[in-house]
Design a protein around this nucleic acid. Structure first.
Lengths: 148, 148
DNA sequence: CAAGGTGTATGAAGGGCATAATACACGTAT
DNA sequence: ATACGTGTATTATGCCCTTCATACACCTTG
């Protein structure tokens, strides 16, 4: 019954398309080992319910994940995480690379001394990771979009 | 005639709303001193033409910049950069803070060792800034190329 | 005065995204 | 066989963003 591993308390930002955020969510789970190669993932309907999104949106995310070879589906049984080593290895570096690239692109025109920049990142990173540690304790059931 | 300081060859990403990217463009120009407090900025129509966007989109960006007190407009004369010290001071830290915050949020779930992370940022940052230097060499401004 | 440049406003059109509501074919467990 | 859960489509509605095309009031310049 409980294909739900930890899908509650997922927050979407109001700017990026939801289906892309779902894909990134899966990539993160895969990259960190929370989802293992060959492991079954929630059905489209389960995921839609758990993430509180529409079935069509979940389907769109899954469909694109299949095109990216992230997941595989045979027949009408639940989809599974790929076992393709190349794809798996690429995930983490892709997430990391696009994040770093986007960040640098965002501040490249600001003339920030590199050391100051790194210090800001370090401080924020450690702050956030401390918060994550606290969060891990409670079984929150909260969710919603971060619209402002 | 040449209210155009360097508005050509501005590239927009296909994800964020254009009017928001325009606002960020102005904020960067202000933060780095390329736009000075009190300085006149291009008219809506000029900006739209230079940035190759619609007048309405430019107007929307300008309108929101006025609500954010970034620019001021009196009567029907060209808008000018604010001289409000508080607003001016906030710009850089806002750009920097949101960039850092977004970046860390993007990689917070990846379990990346902080030193590795910082090294990636440093390398990418220096790479990109080297590219900027090359670009800065040519003072002549020819028409940029339309992307598509 | 007439012309041209301002800021400003409006309506129509289209694309992308998300949602809702069904619908169908396929398996499996009861 | 019935029921249920899969994956997969389809149609419609609505919102946001962008573009195109006008339009008006104001001021300055010729």
């Amino acid at each position: 019954m409980n294909t739900n591993e930890g899908w509650t308390e997922v927050a979407f930002n109001g700017r990026d398309p939801v289906y892309l955020q779902v894909i990134r969510l899966f990539k993160e789970r895969i990259a960190t080992g929370r989802l293992q190669p060959g492991q079954q993932i929630p059905s489209r309907r389960e995921a839609a319910a758990a993430l509180k999104i529409n079935l069509n949106t979940a389907q769109r995310a899954y469909k694109e994940m299949e095109e990216q070879r992230l997941i595989v589906t045979e027949g009408n049984s639940p989809s599974r995480i790929t076992q393709d080593a190349g794809v798996l290895r690429a995930i983490r570096s892709e997430l990391l690379g696009s994040a770093v690239g986007g960040f640098v692109a965002a501040i490249r025109n600001l003339d920030v001394p590199v050391e100051e920049l790194l210090e800001l990142v370090r401080r924020e990173y450690e702050t956030v990771r401390r918060q994550d540690d606290k969060q891990d304790k409670k079984p929150g059931i909260e969710q919603g979009r971060g619209d402002e």
